[in-house]
Design a protein around this nucleic acid. Structure first.
Lengths: 326, 326
DNA sequence: GGTATGCGTGAGAGCGCTCTCCCAATCCTG
DNA sequence: CAGGATTGGGAGAGCGCTCTCACGCATACC
């Protein structure tokens, strides 16, 4: 179980370390016979490059970070696995590691240090608190960063998002096409871009909708629906800005004698697992999370390759998934 | 934005690189005045150690891997965020990175290489396919590894698990205490330790229970419950070996005119988010996932510190969470 | 035949750090 | 007070790799 170095590969192949290195890194301009000899030496010795040594000289860690909110905010979030999966798909074939960091006191500072000392080549920020100064600091320092979802205030930062406005509008059109006459919406938190955009998009389509505020959590869906039924008992169609809230809201409808979708049609947003665990299953606006995550990874890699390239944003189009609730 | 090295810190502090290194690494036996000088130099220069260089000489990556099944098997799995959170809690204060790897063709091989070439110090294996040869290869190679859940066949490997048998027995006792007279169970896959143990534990408590097989997925819960109602219409209590299956099964009960818990009491297992999104909310057996994950991390770190230490297993006790379903 | 051009190869200088020596200074003991 | 034991600090050797540079050997041109 001894370590085999490039030096040894070179010795076995009868070439210099430099040439062996060229072969390992796929550099052109190595004579075919030598390349073969080196490759044979690599497999016969079971050589594996030492990333630390490489990283020391190339100043590339071959690792990116995924900065997540803490468990509580992440809890029940259906996205994590999909995000990881999407990023992994892009990053793994390149041998780049995906480092997970959950926010806690000091995590963001640690991520900054990791970036600065070259332990991480870049980070993807998910569910970042709108007031968080980290994104700003990162771009100020010229460090590669990609945001999941547009920043609250316009800033020159690369982000990937779904067209929230269009998705909410689709939900509105769906409810109208079901001939709902008294339409309401339960919103997300209005201090987040997603919360704002989903409300704005919906109101653009259904200007006279009743608006009740929630915060994307299940519990807020329950509370909001209770409030809605009290203030507007004749509601017959509701767009709920997250599946998780819808999941909490639907039982409230049932307990108040409303059948879904016959008495009240419900359309959610996200197409998360909560859409399937609802009864009836949710009609919802789907965001292609995995593809979006893959795109985030690609954008990040681009920035790493070309540090001074301009910030770009990529917006995916959502689709309406029609199930049983509306 | 220039990089500051130990060399520079030493120069500023007026000591040798060696002494600066001692201070950085908290070695004892450095004169208090020199230590102070170095610390001042560190903060004034904004020094951050280069992990690659350190890792090159210490042969420690300061990173561990979390090997997960692919997205499909992970989908709807409530555990991921909790596992990550638990591991992070232990690992972050030590500056150790958590690298996520989702299984796909070649991932396991890649994890092995990363381990062998020193890019990863150890791995935690989650949801490993019972037939997977990787755990065996890892321990054969003497590489630090911890399993989530006991291995199918006894082998000298460190693992952390919940007492599945005891948990299932608790579920059985709960149903008996509710005076259920016709008790059934929907099992997990019988080629997994968890599936086996939950069935065995339950049967030990309720030997005459009707047994219908599932595979932990929501869909299998639906199918199994349909089958159960057909073969045993007078069932009045059922232990369902995962919350996700229970989540699929309960609507089947409703559709067949059974009230939960009045006509049929239901007890699940996991206390995952599916327990809360069920209607009524699930009575279930809770496993302390986050604590277990933290323990896995600790066990892994121990193995990394003492490579030849014997394999140990840590088994957590589950608790019954009584809600509305039974 | 001599100079220019090119391409493939090897030598060797680091990348930033840790850690083992070794030396100097201080302490204890008889 | 001499001798050994103990301690703190510095010099310097590497860890394994990449990459620049210079060199040798063809091929091409005048």
């Amino acid at each position: 179980m001894k370590r085999v170095t490039l030096e040894e590969v070179a010795r076995v192949a009868g070439v210099s370390r430099a040439t062996a290195s060229r072969v390992v890194n796929g550099a052109s301009s190595v004579d075919e016979s030598l390349r073969h000899a080196v490759q044979k030496a690599i497999s016969s010795t079971g050589y594996l490059p030492n990333i630390a040594a490489r990283s020391l000289v190339t100043r590339r860690a071959a690792a990116i970070g995924l900065l997540l909110p803490d468990e509580r905010r992440m809890d029940g979030d259906p996205h994590l696995a999909s995000v990881v999966s999407g990023v992994t798909r892009v990053v793994r074939p390149l041998g780049i590691h995906l480092v997970l960091m959950m926010t806690g006191p000091g995590t963001r500072a640690q991520a900054m240090s990791d970036l600065r000392c070259g332990r991480l080549d870049g980070v993807i920020l998910v569910h970042t608190d709108p007031a968080d100064p980290v994104p700003g600091e990162l771009i100020a320092a010229g460090l590669p960063v990609v945001l999941a979802g547009r920043p609250l205030k316009p800033m020159p930062i690369t982000y990937v998002d779904v067209n929230q406005t269009a998705g909410a509008a689709m939900a509105g059109r769906r409810l109208k096409s079901l001939r709902c006459s008294r339409i309401a919406t339960i919103t997300g938190p209005q201090d987040t871009p997603a919360g704002q955009d989903r409300l704005a998009g919906f109101l653009a389509e259904v200007p006279d909708a009743v608006v009740v505020h929630g915060d994307f959590t299940r519990q807020s869906g329950i509370t909001a629906m209770q409030k809605l039924l009290r203030c507007c008992p004749d509601v017959d169609g509701v767009f709920i800005a997250s599946d998780l809230m819808a999941n909490g809201a639907i039982p409230v409808l049932h307990r108040n004698g409303r059948k879904v979708p016959d008495d009240v049609a419900v359309v959610g947003f996200d197409d998360s697992s909560a859409a399937l665990t609802s009864e009836p299953e949710l009609t919802t606006v789907r965001q292609p999370i995995t593809d979006m995550a893959a795109e985030m990874a690609r954008q990040l890699l681009r920035q790493i390759a070309e540090p001074r390239s301009p910030a770009t944003s990529v917006v995916f189009e959502p689709t309406l998934v029609v199930r049983d609730s509306g």
